[in-house]
Structures are given as C-alpha cells and as structure tokens.
C-alpha cells in the first residue's frame, strides 16, 4: 500500500512500472529539476485511463543551458515533436509548451513548459518526491492538483461535468488521499480557482 508522508513531502509507491512510467522516468532523469503536473499525477496513483501527453514544468533557463539539454534529450532517444531547431524551440518555450517524444513515436509525448505563474511556482516549490524502488519522480502537491483538476473541467451543466475526465481525475486523487491531504490548503486553492461549486464532485 502506498505511504504518504506530508511533512517529508514524500510518497513511497511500490507499483509495477508501466511503459508510460518508464518513459516519464527516462525523460525526467535527463532533467536537473522539474515538477510533473496534471493528468499523469492521477495515472501514477492508479487512475485507470491512458493519456496522450504528460505535463511537466521546468524552471526558466538560458539559451546555452537549453541547448545543452536539447542535445542531451536527443542523444537519449527522444526528439522534439513541435520544433526541429533548437533556437525556434527556445523562442516558442517562452510563450508556449514544446513537446518531446520517443524518436519516431509522437504519442505519448512530454509537454514541456516553463514555470511562469504563481501556481506553477507553488507546484515546483512544494513538489512531492514519489519514490518507486530505485526510481523517483517529483509531482505537484496533491491539494493543488485536486483543485486544479476541478478548475480544468470544461464549463457545462452538471450532466456534462459528471463525465468530464478532469472531474474524474480530481475525484480519484481525492478518494485515494483524502485521509492525508491538508483540507485547509485544498480549500484555499478551491477558493483561489473559484471552483467551490465543483467540490460536490469529490464527495
């Protein structure tokens, strides 16, 4: 059974790694620092669904740093799906996400974004280490993830929201960690993201 130590910001997970986990670990091992956010976090903790992309945030870097990383990524069997030139990719990264995948296999891919907003900064600064045997990954704090997933769900009627994958992701994470998460912190993000009306989907 997984063990979550909120004070240490650490989760011990004894799962069998999926091919998706291996891809994410291989990619993340090439990075100095990062935080995984959004759908993959739910999948890592058992959500039974596939995905086309894995969202990842990294701190701002200079062009020489980016160029070095670009080469490292390409030397290790990945390629950029969105850009073929390093300078274009670097420019694009300032405003948008760029995507990397295993060479010749565009999906699933890693959606790679620079940390910009306060929510991004919070995710990175309070990231949780998930230890899986010899491997580990850094994920966004669960309280923020749950609120963010509720926020991501498309606007719509209750009937439409009921089958939204983001609502399902939020509910899954909440059900798994409800005894361990910080409810006050969850409410802070629920209020900041103005999704109080969507709280009912967690219960």
């Amino acid at each position: 059974m997984m063990e979550y130590y909120p004070d240490k910001k650490e989760i011990i997970l004894d799962r069998e790694l999926s091919n998706l986990d291996r891809l994410v670990i291989d990619f993340c091992n090439l990075l100095d620092s990062y935080v995984l956010v959004s759908g993959y976090v739910s999948i890592l903790f058992g959500r039974s669904r596939g995905t086309e992309d894995v969202d990842l945030l990294i701190p701002l870097m200079s062009y020489p740093q980016f160029n070095k990383l670009w080469l490292k990524i390409h030397e290790n069997g990945f390629e950029c799906v969105t850009n073929s030139r390093t300078d274009d990719a670097f420019e694009m990264l300032k405003k948008h996400a760029i995507r990397f995948s295993i060479s010749g296999k565009p999906t699933p891919n890693i959606e790679f974004k620079i940390i910009k907003t306060d929510l991004d900064k919070y995710s990175f600064g309070n990231r949780i280490k998930v230890k899986m045997g010899k491997e580990s990954l850094f994920i966004s704090p669960l309280e923020m993830q749950i609120a963010y997933k509720l926020f991501l769900a498309a606007d719509g009627t209750d009937e439409e929201l009921m089958s939204d994958k983001d609502i399902e992701d939020a509910r899954h994470l909440y059900k798994i960690f409800k005894d361990k998460i910080n409810k006050d912190e969850l409410l802070i993000f629920i209020n900041k993201l103005n999704v109080k009306k969507r709280l009912k989907w967690l219960k």
């Binding site: 069998e16 790694l17 999926s18 091919n19 291996r22 058992g46 039974s48």
Partner: peptide
C-alpha cells in the same frame, strides 16, 4: 480497491490498460 490491495496488485491491472496503448519502448 487501490487502498485495500498492494501497489503491485492494482498496478499490474492498471498496466494492462496502459501498456495496451503504449508498447514497450526505448
């Protein structure tokens, strides 16, 4: 189910779904 079964057990089942979409790579 996840909370009452070992990580190995539930992940083995989850991987049947995930790995069917993502073949072994690298």
């Amino acid at each position: 189910y996840i909370k009452t079964h070992s990580d190995k057990e539930w992940s083995r089942q989850q991987n049947m779904l995930i790995d069917s979409q993502i073949p072994e790579n690298l």
